[in-house]
Simulated scan of single mutants.
Amino acid sequence: MSTFTASPSTVKTRFLIFSDTHNATPITDAFNPSFRQPQPKADVLLHCGDLTMVGKLHEYENTLNMLAGIEAGLKLVIAGNHDISLDETFFNRKGQYMHRLQEPDDTVHAQAKEIWTGDKARAAGVIYLEEGTHCFTLKNGAKLRVYASPYQPEFCDWAFPYFRNEDRYNPPHLATPGAVPIAVNPAPDFPAADIMMTHGPPMGLRDKVFPGNEHVGCEHLLRASRRCKPRLHCFGHIHEGWGAEMVRWKEGDELDTEWEKHVQESQYIEVDELKATEERVAFVDISKDSKKPLEFGKETLMINASIMTVTYRPHQAPWLVDLDLEKAA
């Protein structure tokens, strides 16, 4: 098993985390919502996908304008299953029907990508992440390494899907036993990533749907997260899964399939809902200055940051997280 020695030279870094805004913007006058203006400042803003309801260009523009108005040195964005025009293969298959177009329009995908990678996005400090590992040097002098993926198990035939028997996140020699390995950009081994940023949740962690209380996260992503052991793994997709848990991983590198073989302990993070409403965020400090600092390599903070409720009301709080990053060389 890989070992890691903490660097004496770290930088406390603040992350503001959203997911599943679905074209909503922070409101200014409503009863008891946490998602309202102004949003707090942060070193890094993370948006874990479902920027829109159905991937229309004006929806992307609206969400980009919202992100531009938030003060953060770096703003990282991935797509989600509702952002259908950012998945070229899917949009070529279903875009005409889902956008109610009279005829196919093969320019929509390029226009959608341009919104998130063009001059306006750059001016807003926004970087759109494709699947893979990305490295950044922050304005506070910290080094940030992020593994990103917009994919999730197939769900009612929306964008960025894979079948549940397909392992998208682990290389073939580490794939889930019995699964079909399809990883193109697998998650890296520990300690190569500080953050995992996926649209869908890992199996058993903030992934329960109602009614039915069924866990719908991905078992292959759970294994990848255990192998990667990031400081933070943030996601959305399952609106009713909003919340945070601190996971302590099992020791070893076994290719197990069961949840309990990966997770030693998972502790729910209590949130003072009144305070979260007043401060517009749910706040967690896992830096070395906190009462319970994160043990990098042994623990991962899991956050489902879905802003929308299960009934598509933008009333769930964003998350504000303080954690330590290594200083850049």
Rank of each mutant, 00 (worst) to 15 (best):
E61P: 07
D119M: 06
K261I: 00
T133S: 15
K143H: 14
R231D: 00
L57Y: 01
A79L: 04
A124W: 02
L294C: 00
T309K: 10
M308C: 13
A244D: 01
E245W: 02
W242C: 10
Y60Q: 07
F155D: 09
T52H: 06
G200F: 02
T21D: 02
G73F: 01
T107D: 08
D285G: 07
I303W: 01
L74V: 09
T63A: 11
K56Q: 10
G55D: 01
P8D: 02
L320F: 01
A328M: 07
K327H: 13
T5E: 10
E166K: 11
V209W: 03
C218D: 15
A187N: 03
V44I: 03
A112I: 02
I27H: 11
E59K: 08
Q96W: 00
Y128H: 11
M1K: 11
S266Q: 14
K250E: 13
E326Q: 15
N213P: 01
Y128D: 02
H239G: 07
G217Q: 11
E154N: 15
Q264R: 14
F90Y: 15
D43M: 12
V180Y: 10
T63R: 00
V263W: 04
S7P: 01
Q102K: 12
E251F: 03
V54D: 05
A142T: 15
K41T: 14
Q111P: 00
K94W: 13
V146P: 00
R14S: 08
V216P: 00
A193K: 02
E88I: 11
L255Y: 00
D289H: 12
K12M: 05
F163N: 15
H233V: 00
Y97H: 10
V321L: 06
P186F: 08
R93I: 11
P8I: 06
K275V: 09
K327Q: 14
C228T: 14
F296M: 05
L101K: 08
K75V: 03
F296A: 12
P26E: 05
R313L: 09
G236A: 03
P188A: 00
L129F: 07
G252F: 03
K261C: 12
Q267D: 10
V281F: 02
D272M: 12
G73T: 10
N62A: 14
A112V: 05
A159Y: 13
H315G: 07
E103D: 07
P150T: 09
H199Y: 03
D189I: 07
I286Q: 01
K143A: 15
F235M: 08
Y128T: 02
K94L: 08
R248G: 01
F4T: 09
A192S: 13
F91H: 05
D157I: 06
L274W: 12
E299G: 01
V281H: 01
E166W: 12
C228I: 02
T311W: 10
Q316A: 06
P186L: 09
K208C: 12
I269C: 09
G95N: 08
T311S: 06
R100D: 00
L274H: 14
I303E: 11
A317G: 08
G178M: 01
Q96I: 04
H315D: 13
V310W: 09
C234T: 14
N185C: 09
A110N: 00
V184T: 10
A193C: 09
E245H: 04
